[in-house]
Amino acid sequence: MWSPAPDRHRRDMTSPHLPAQPTPGRSAPVPVPWAVVGGLAALALLWPLAGLTGALGTGAPRALTIIGITAVVWIGVVGLGRVPRPVLTLTLTGVAYGLVAHAVALLVPVLGGLGGPGGGPLWTIVPALLLDAMWGALAGLAAAGVQRLRGSGR
């Protein structure tokens, strides 16, 4: 079978050394900013810190204050910081926040504040993570709204 001579000046488009070319009309996917997710999830440490120091009072007022601070920081950082994919970023942040909170409760039950040794029954982790993801998604929607108001929506 006849085969044309290879053209030495033409690059083979299937070469693994070439960067991936985006499909016409489509842009390359924007990666999730994992450093932002981890940093914002670290706010889960406010619970044991407030419990240990006695700051912010006790009971419901302390809980509402921590939840409010967390929400304002999440929406502010992502909304004003032009973080890409705000809903996905804060949904993942919510899940990571829940994982940090449960890890603290398991490792240091006195500081965890989740109701006793080990942070409560193991079966409560999945519903709690789903709830944290939902709160993160709602905060992400608010952050996306802030980005749109500022003219930096993605």
Rank of each mutant, 00 (worst) to 15 (best):
P19I: 03
P19F: 03
Q21K: 05
T23E: 15
R26L: 13
S27H: 09
S27T: 14
S27N: 11
P29I: 00
V30G: 00
V30Y: 00
P31L: 03
P31T: 07
P31I: 05
V32S: 01
W34H: 03
V37R: 00
G38Q: 01
L40I: 13
A41C: 03
A42T: 03
A42N: 02
A44W: 00
L45F: 10
L46M: 08
L46W: 00
W47H: 12
W47N: 13
P48F: 01
A50Y: 09
A50T: 08
G51Q: 11
T53P: 10
T53I: 06
A55S: 10
L56H: 09
L56C: 09
G57S: 05
A60Q: 10
P61A: 03
R62F: 12
R62A: 10
A63R: 14
A63F: 14
A63H: 12
L64F: 12
L64C: 02
T65G: 12
I66M: 12
I67Y: 13
I67T: 15
G68H: 04
I69L: 15
A71P: 07
A71T: 15
A71N: 05
V73R: 14
W74S: 06
W74I: 02
G76W: 11
G76M: 05
V77L: 04
V77A: 10
V77R: 02
V78E: 00
L80M: 12
L80F: 15
L80R: 13
R82S: 12
V83H: 04
P84R: 05
R85T: 00
R85C: 01
P86H: 03
V87K: 01
V87G: 08
L88P: 02
L90A: 03
T91K: 02
L92T: 05
Y97T: 08
G98Y: 09
L99Q: 06
L99C: 14
L99R: 01
H102K: 06
V104I: 11
A105Y: 03
V108T: 11
P109L: 08
L111T: 07
G112S: 12
G113S: 05
G113I: 05
G113T: 09
L114R: 10
G115K: 02
G116R: 04
G118W: 11
G118Y: 15
G119V: 10
G119Q: 12
G119P: 09
G120W: 02
P121E: 11
L122N: 10
L122G: 14
W123R: 10
W123T: 12
T124F: 14
T124I: 11
I125V: 15
I125C: 05
I125N: 05
V126C: 06
P127W: 13
P127T: 07
A128I: 14
L131E: 15
L131K: 13
D132M: 07
A133P: 08
W135D: 02
G136F: 11
G136C: 06
L138N: 01
L138M: 07
G140W: 03
G140V: 09
L141C: 13
A142K: 05
A142S: 12
A143E: 01
A144D: 05
G145I: 06
G145Y: 02
V146S: 02
V146M: 08
V146T: 13
Q147P: 09
Q147E: 12
Q147L: 11
Q147R: 13
